[in-house]
Structures are given as C-alpha cells and as structure tokens.
Design a protein around this nucleic acid. Structure first.
Length: 282
DNA sequence: ACTATGTCCTGCGAGC
DNA sequence: TGCTCGCAGGACATAG
C-alpha cells in the first residue's frame, strides 16, 4: 500500500499514540509469510519492552524499544551500548498492510497476523490481506538506500548517472533511494518533464537536478496532505490522506494532461504501470 | 555487478 | 447473479 509519505504519516500517528507504552505480550498468527524473523525471536525481543519512539526509515516503520524492567546487570550493560544497539521492531506494510491501535474488544479483522497487548490496555494489530508485508526484529536498522528528503544533490546524481535501466525502474530500486514507490515515481517524473522509459544514464546533470527537486517537492506536499488514499488506505488515526487529489498522471490514463490536454499514456515498466504525458515529458 | 522477468498473495471492479 | 480476467501502493529470487 504505502510509499514514503503514507509510511511517514502512519509512523507519526503511531508515535503520537503508542510512544511510551509497553508491549506486554504478542500474538503471532500461523501464516509464515509475514514474519522475516522467527516468531520466537520476535516474541522474545518485543515482550516487556517499552516503545521509546516510532519513526519511518525508507518505507519501514521502526519501533525503537527500551527495556521496561531492566535487571541490575542489564542496566549496566545497556549503559555501555550505544543507543543504536537497542532492539527495534521493524514493520514493512507491503501493499496492503495496516497497523491498528484498538481496544481489545474491537472485532478482529480477517487477515490479522499479529496482535501486541499494550500496558495501556489497548492493542496494536497488524493486518495484511496480501501478506506482502513483513515483521522483523533487529538492532541498528538502516535502509540500504539514501533517504530522498535527506540525500545531497551530488550523491543523488551519482546514484543514477551510470545506470542503463529506465529511470522509472531505478527510482523504484530501494537500494538506491529508499521510499519512492510507483505513485511518487510517476508524479516526480511528470513534474521533472522526464519520460519513465528514459535510460537513467541518458539524463543530463540538469535533468537529474530537476528530478531531485521534483521528488522532494512531491514527497513534501504528499506528507503535508497525509499521503494518498487509494482504495482503503487510512493512517493510524483512521484519517484518509488527500494527495490523491493532486495526482497529475498516476491513475489518469486517457484523461487530459492538466498542463497541455494531451491524453495521459500508460505503459508497463518492470511489471508496474507507468503513467506519463507524451507531450510534457521527453 | 547490473538488468529484466517471474512470483509471492487476496480482493475488487469491469465486462460478459 | 455469478463467473473470469486484469489489476493493485512492494520486494525478492532467479536467470542471463
């Protein structure tokens, strides 16, 4: 479901609602796909931990955990460790994953794969019909690619300069940039005036500079509007996003370009729908 | 090392 | 009404 702006919105909402709460126990469903770490490992890492913070890294939600009832010896060893070595719960929502904060009495939705009981009496539930989402535990999590809103221009240019693959495919490659997905790749390429099939290596430094600025602009606008609500996406508070109203090419095949009225085209690239204006994008 | 393609899943809407 | 088909916000494994 979610790309960077949606995950950012969800992580902020979760941080507001569960920061400081304690995970008392966790139930994990029997379907193996959603678990990247073993169930045993996840349970052992999460139980009796306090959620010190919830944040976004790439398209991942990171729950930073702290000992809730540290023993004397643990406390001592924790002092010696850098904060980055504290345990973390990593949630990737895939296409259809959701994290819900609810009362235990709330009906358990179909495709619920994990339920964490919280000290506040509430529950944190992971629901994901398509099971493309993943749960794992780790220490010092880092996304493989650069953060689009933090990367410097020179670094950005060097990521794409020598790639023969279409620029759209390169934008979706999370080991280059972490967080851009199908919607925001299309929207950024439109704003930068670049066709999705252009070879990344054919782009001039000026092209890449425009793309760099377009990506940041699109992502910031989308975050400000709470992300794009397509089908049933809602954030942690059940609020819809509104950036879908700002889409200029995504999902608009055949509709007139908002700039020049030319019908928007759709092609399939790397197995993903790609939308562009054949006149505005070169 | 890089690139292109298939696969993992369920649910929904379009078209018949 | 009910069926089949294509499509969906993602990311891996695999083969070339």
């Amino acid at each position: 479901m979610p790309e960077l702006p949606e995950v950012e919105t969800i992580a902020r909402g979760l941080d507001k609602r569960v920061r400081g709460d304690v995970i008392e126990s966790i139930w994990l469903g029997s379907k193996p796909e959603p678990l990247k770490s073993t169930a045993k490992e996840i349970a052992a890492t999460l139980e009796a931990k306090r959620i010190s913070q919830v944040r976004r890294v790439g398209k991942h939600i990171v729950f930073d955990l702290a000992e809730h009832r540290p023993s004397r010896s643990r406390k001592k060893s924790r002092k010696a460790d850098p904060p980055s070595q504290n345990a973390q719960w990593i949630v990737h929502l895939g296409m259809t994953g959701r994290m819900l904060v609810c009362e235990p009495s709330a009906e358990i939705e179909k495709h619920t794969h994990a339920i964490a009981q919280l000290g506040s009496g509430r529950e944190l539930r992971f629901v994901d019909p398509r099971r493309f989402g993943r749960l794992s535990v780790t220490h010092g999590f880092a996304a493989p690619g650069s953060e689009p809103l933090e990367v410097e221009l020179d670094r950005f240019v060097s990521l794409f300069r020598n790639r023969k693959t279409p620029i759209k495919s390169a934008l979706l490659n999370q080991s280059l940039l972490s967080g851009v997905g199908n919607i925001y790749a299309d929207e950024s390429l439109f704003r930068a005036g670049i066709r999705p099939r252009r070879r990344a290596s054919s782009l001039t430094r000026e092209d890449l500079r425009r793309l760099y600025l377009a990506i940041q602009e699109v992502l910031k606008e989308a975050i400000a509007l709470g992300g794009s609500s397509i089908s049933d996406y809602v954030d942690a508070d059940g609020e819809e996003g509104f950036f879908q109203l700002q889409h200029r090419v995504y999902g608009r095949e055949g509709e007139p370009c908002l700039v020049c009225k030319t019908p928007i085209k759709r092609v399939v690239l790397a197995g993903r729908s790609s939308h562009y204006c054949p006149k505005c994008q070169k």
